[in-house]
Design a protein around this nucleic acid. Structure first.
Length: 208
DNA sequence: CCACGGATTGGCT
DNA sequence: GCCAATCCGTGGA
């Protein structure tokens, strides 16, 4: 893991829409090692994606899109390259990347990431201005709702274009094929046996 | 119309 | 390990 001081970012390596417009399982694996970037009030937030889950509109009963388009899930039916943010358990937001073609209903849940830049802002977003630096960096973005909160990805960001705004992904780190692990998805009750969770082996920032 | 439960988290026993 | 928090989309009556 590179130290924070020597990381250099090439924001011109922003991924374009065609990156997202492929099969959801392919894009999910390719998203590992990419950096999620958000410009927030002139500052840069960045985190390396270390864990994701794929959801597929057709054939996956756990997908919000499985029963067809509704007001809530309509963004999932766009073509790849949009952000789908949903509200869950009355408290939390979770952020997804829409993939594939229009009306596929496929998306990738961002489950965990490794903070790279803007850690103090992430802390503030997660814990409020008063809690400062006491909280450990490990707990900032190691879960889907934690990541969404650290990046302040709430309902206002549902439907934003990942190739033409202040939120996008860039090339960051190539992940060895042997370091990409697969498992069943977490926390669902339907289609629970599909092996559509992907994560970087032994990474310290995986969800708990 | 109403009841149910969810792609989670954090605090308490 | 267990469970409350707290909203709202969805599905059955």
């Amino acid at each position: 893991m590179p130290s924070l001081e020597v990381i250099s970012f090439d924001l011109s390596k922003q991924l374009s829409l065609n990156f997202y417009q492929n099969d959801v399982l392919e894009v999910a694996k390719q998203l590992l090692g990419k950096a999620l970037i958000k410009r927030e009030k002139g500052q840069i937030l960045a985190a390396k994606i270390v864990e994701v889950e794929a959801y597929r509109g057709k054939s996956d009963q756990a997908a919000h899109s499985y029963r067809g388009k509704t007001k809530r899930n309509e963004v999932m039916f766009k073509s790849g390259g949009f952000l789908y943010v949903y509200f869950i358990y009355g408290i939390h937001y979770c952020a997804n990347v829409v993939t594939g073609k229009e009306n596929d209903g496929d998306a990738i849940l961002l489950r965990a990431a490794e903070p790279l830049l803007g850690v103090d802002i992430m802390r503030r977003n997660r814990y409020g201005a008063t809690e400062g630096t006491a909280k450990q960096i490990d707990n900032l973005t190691n879960g889907p709702a934690k990541l969404a909160k650290a990046f302040k990805l709430n309902g206002e960001y549902n439907g934003v274009n990942l190739a033409s705004g202040d939120i996008f992904f860039i090339e960051f780190e190539e992940i060895e094929k042997n370091d990409i692990c697969t498992s069943k998805r977490i926390g669902i009750s339907k289609s629970k046996d599909l092996p559509w969770r992907f994560f970087i082996k032994n990474n310290r920032f995986l969800s708990k």
